[in-house]
Structure formats: structure tokens, C-alpha cells
């Protein structure tokens, strides 16, 4: 017998029919020419037959019932969660993660909006209007027709306190006379200085008046503006208000926006009141009392300083303001 490597493997594969046709033919040729190889093949075939002849034993009949019982027990006791349960759990976990991520994003978005509303500068209305005016005509044609916005009516009360009551009242009366048409205000009696001034005037007149009143603001001990809201009896109170702030509030076209601005100023002024070091600032401000303040320019011509402002139509008179001046003493 020739020495053939892996002869047993070759013969076993031959017995099991696992050889390629060419190898099968080769083994058949070997078997025909070598008795020992043929004898070895018989031995291996006997062994195979030996095992194949073993009877098939039937499985115990209770296997099916036992499998059912085992599955039921595992499900009840939760010993080993099924793959299906694991998939459901994984889906639940994924859903919760996604929900948490969405909630986080929403929270960040809300916070960002809040921060932006606080930090972002207010875009002034004027420049926008100017930019629109400077736009090319072709673009204007493409845009919708401009909407004329009638300024909403402002209604409120301004309470002033001073320790130089006569001077302040006199100044206010003069300012009103000079800047507001006579039919737009009801002046208080000079003697009854506690009587309020009731103004129903246009924003143009009011702005002139405010510019004039700004000169006596330093003589006021307090200035509080009460802005009426759409809810009857509810007002926005802006303490320590300045003339600029009043102008900023009153000149808003939209009543909602006007109330928002008033609230912002109220908060700002309140914060400024409670800022640390305010006493120092006040002390520093007081040092300016003794300084030389250049007098404001005064007209020296023959023209009267007071010009009668022409009367306006009722539609323009959108400022309803009551001014009261009291003695702080």
C-alpha cells in the first residue's frame, strides 16, 4: 500500500459521498488496485453501519408539556426576559431618551428666547422706516401696499413731587402754554396748585412739552408715571421715571408694546433703585451742585418765546395725560 496522506479522511469522505467527482473516481481506482485500502474502507464502513444501526429512541412524551410549563414559569417569575420583551424594553428606553433629548432642546430654546429678549437690542422703528424709504422703487412695487398705522391712544397720569412747588408749577404752566394749544389742556389754577393739569393733545405737542419739562427734572424729588392698561383699573407704575422714558413709552404706536416698554422701564428703575453703591453715586452727583452750570441759551430777539400752536383735529389728540404736582415736604 502506498503511503497516502489523510487516507482515512479520504475514505470516510468516500463512504459519506462527500468527495468531488474527480476525487471519487481516484478513490475508486485506488480501491481497485490496493487490497489493503479496500480492507480499510470495509472497516470504516462497518463502523458507520454500526452507529447507523442504533435504534431511534422516542423522546419522553412530557417534553412538550414541560417546555410549556417552563416558559410559563419563566414568564411569571421574570427569571429570564424573552427576546421580545428585551426589544420592547429597548424601544421604551430609546423613546425615553428621545423624549428627554427633545425636552432638553425645548428648554434650551425657551431659555435662549428669554435671554435674547433680555439681551438683544431693541430695533428702533425710525431707521427701519428710513431704510424702506431708501429702497429701490422696483422693490417697493413688489412689496405689499404700506399700511398706515394710527397711533394708539395713550392714557395715564404723571405724579411729580418737589420741595420747590411754586417754581415747578409755574414752570410747568408756562411750558404747557408755550407748547400745547390752549384747547388741548385744562390748566390748574395757579393758586390751587394741587389741582391737576389735564392734557388731551397730540404726540407732537406732548414731545415739545416733555423736552421743555426735562429742564426742571433735576428739581423733582420723585416722578411716577401711571400707564393705563386695557384692563380697567390696572395700571403699570413706573417709578423714578425720566422725561426720556416717558417719551419712549408714549411714542409707541401699539398699546401692547407701550405697556411692555413701561414695564421694562419699571423693572429697570426698580433695579437701579436697589443697586449697591447707589448712595455713593448720589453723593458724587451732589458734588455737582456747587459747580458752575452754563445757562441755557435764551432768545434775545423781539419775537415772543411763546408761539401759539395751531389747533388740531380730534383724531390727532391721542395723548390723555393728567399731571399732578405735590409738595414733597
Amino acid at each position: 500500500m502506498k503511503e497516502i496522506p489523510n487516507l482515512d479522511e479520504l475514505l470516510n469522505s468516500f463512504i459519506d459521498g462527500e468527495l468531488a467527482p474527480r476525487q471519487h473516481t481516484e478513490v475508486q481506482r485506488l480501491l481497485a488496485h490496493d487490497e489493503k485500502i479496500a480492507q480499510r474502507l470495509d472497516e470504516l464502513q462497518q463502523c458507520k453501519m454500526f452507529l447507523s444501526s442504533m435504534p431511534v429512541v422516542e423522546a419522553p412524551p412530557q417534553i412538550l408539556e414541560n417546555v410549556k410549563a417552563s416558559l410559563a414559569r419563566r414568564t411569571l417569575l421574570g427569571e429570564e426576559p424573552s427576546a421580545f420583551d428585551e426589544q420592547i424594553g429597548a424601544r421604551h428606553l430609546l423613546g425615553r431618551k428621545l423624549f428627554a433629548a427633545a425636552a432638553m432642546l425645548g428648554l434650551v430654546a425657551v431659555l435662549a428666547a428669554v435671554v435674547y429678549s433680555i439681551v438683544a437690542p431693541t430695533i428702533p422703528q425710525g431707521p427701519i422706516a428710513a431704510e424702506r424709504k431708501s429702497m429701490p422703487a422696483t422693490i417697493d412695487l413688489a412689496e405689499p401696499a404700506p399700511v398706515i398705522v394710527v397711533a394708539a391712544q395713550f392714557s395715564g397720569r404723571l405724579e411729580l413731587q418737589t420741595n420747590t412747588l411754586p417754581a415747578v408749577v409755574g414752570f410747568i404752566n408756562r411750558a404747557i402754554e408755550e407748547n400745547v394749544p390752549s384747547d388741548e389742556w385744562i390748566a390748574s389754577d395757579q393758586k390751587e396748585i394741587r389741582e391737576p393739569h389735564s392734557l388731551i393733545c397730540s404726540s407732537e405737542s406732548f414731545n415739545l412739552l416733555l423736552a421743555r419739562l426735562d429742564d426742571i427734572w433735576s428739581k423733582l424729588d420723585s416722578a411716577t408715571l401711571f400707564v393705563d392698561t386695557e384692563v380697567f383699573g390696572r395700571k403699570v407704575v413706573v417709578e423714578a421715571v425720566t422725561a426720556d422714558q416717558i417719551a419712549g413709552i408714549v411714542n409707541q404706536d401699539d398699546s401692547t408694546r407701550r405697556i411692555e416698554v413701561a414695564r421694562d422701564f419699571a423693572v429697570l428703575n426698580n433695579i437701579a433703585e436697589h443697586l449697591p453703591g447707589r448712595e455713593i453715586l448720589t453723593a458724587i452727583d451732589n458734588t455737582t451742585v456747587g459747580l458752575i452750570i452754563p445757562p441755557k441759551p435764551v432768545l434775545t430777539s423781539n419775537h415772543k418765546t411763546t408761539t401759539k400752536v395751531p389747533s388740531r383735529t380730534g383724531a390727532d389728540k391721542n395723548i390723555h395725560l393728567t399731571i399732578t404736582v405735590t409738595d414733597s415736604k
Binding site: N6, D8, E9, N12, S13, D16, E18, C47, K48
Partner: peptide
């Protein structure tokens, strides 16, 4: 598979 089967059958015959 081939080698394990070959060795297994050979050993089984030896055992018997």
C-alpha cells in the same frame, strides 16, 4: 469536520 470524523470513527473501532 473531516479530520474529527476520521479520528472519531477510528477511535471508536479501537474501543470496540
Amino acid at each position: 469536520v473531516r479530520s474529527r470524523l476520521s479520528r472519531g470513527r477510528k477511535k471508536l473501532r479501537q474501543i470496540l
